[in-house]
Design a protein around this nucleic acid. Structure first.
Lengths: 206, 206
DNA sequence: AAAATTAGTATTGAGTCGAAACTATATTTA
DNA sequence: TAAATATAGTTTCGACTCAATACTAATTTT
């Protein structure tokens, strides 16, 4: 590398300079994004999984029972339903999830992780390097980052008129009942405390 | 949507609960990353460009004259040189860049954006929605975010033994000369002030 | 009862991506 | 200085993503 640079010393050729007017935040996010993607690819490759497949498994491990359908995955990942349908087919064939027909709507199916799917997510997401780097953040730094990213994410989603896919705990429709359970005013059903920590496609921020 | 949820009220079926042990920071980054990618895809689609092609053009608009080769792009995006070679071929065919042989090393080529390439980057990166959302951040928030992301990015790169690809201004080898120019102690060449704001593949943080 | 909407699948073509094999040039070493 | 090694880049292959389009079947609206 050094040697190669010694040669570069001799090089002289014209060079236009681009003004650096681009947002540094964008550059950081773009790089981090690419890095995460490459990391997810590496992790997934051990099981023959693509990055998008890893993301789908991760989503399915976090979503509630109203949000585990192909359409919900489609909205979450902001892709077309055809694309998602194909990828789900691959994941099913590989044994990471299976489909259960909805008992009430015959058009609809529910996606459930198999044991292999759950195992993969719990072991591989988020990958260990990321976790150890996060551990080095001070709690103030961590909170600042979380707040900032939350703001960016939700504002971008708002601008795209997309669902926020937050957890019930932070949803307008979620109501605390006296007996330490919760109630969703949209679906009109009771939710256990654990359930309020899962992602919902109908989430509306308070 | 509402109507559909009314039906869900009737649904009763077993549900296992996954413990939410995953890092919220990771989930935010993963989603932001996917959102940025989708957005880049949309922007690029108008010109027939894929997300990765947009990223390559963006990189080439920011890198210095020692870092505009296929190998540098490969390292920056952390992919294989074969993949990058293919993508560059497409970008060249589409008229967004052209290749210039290196006068000193006959193996090497330099990638230069065409006018169309420069025009695309300056208009499309970062996309306008992102810019307007960033404008709503307080300067303190912005600084916190920048610091936090910078930390995550550089620590992850360090963990992967990857080059940091920072700008000369923040490089160990960069030396300020009295006459408001700079000097790179690695390549042994003078750098103009503008040049010190460009990305270098040999960057080593101070 | 007819029309419109919704959930999901299948097909097609351009492109990504890693792996592997390859060419040509440059550097190291013996 | 000749041989071995390293480096920059290209090509080919096969599995996969992805948007677009067309499609089926079920459900809701009119």
């Amino acid at each position: 590398m050094l040697l190669q640079m010694k040669n570069l010393v001799k090089i002289v050729f014209s060079q236009y300079y681009n003004v650096m007017n681009t947002n540094i935040l964008y550059t950081y996010l773009e790089r981090l994004s690419e890095l995460l993607r490459v990391e997810a690819r590496k992790k997934g490759a051990e099981q023959g999984l693509q990055p998008i497949q890893v993301e789908i498994l991760h989503y399915l491990s976090q979503c509630n029972r109203f949000s585990d359908t192909p359409m919900a995955v489609t909205e979450y990942l902001r892709q077309t339903k055809g694309t998602v349908s194909q990828t789900l087919k691959v994941l099913e064939k590989k044994g990471f999830l299976h489909k259960r027909p909805d008992p009430n709507d015959k058009r609809s199916v529910h996606l459930k992780l198999t044991t292999a799917g759950q195992k993969f997510v719990s072991e591989a997401v988020p990958f260990s390097v990321f976790q150890s780097v996060c551990a080095d953040l001070s709690s103030a730094q961590k909170q600042n980052l979380e707040q900032g990213l939350h703001f960016l994410l939700f504002e971008l989603l708002k601008a795209n008129q997309a669902q926020t896919f937050g957890v019930c705990k932070s949803c307008r429709y979620n109501q605390k009942l006296p007996n330490s359970t919760f109630f969703c005013q949209l679906v009109g059903e009771e939710l256990s405390p654990q359930e309020t920590q899962l992602i919902c496609r109908e989430h509306v921020p308070v």
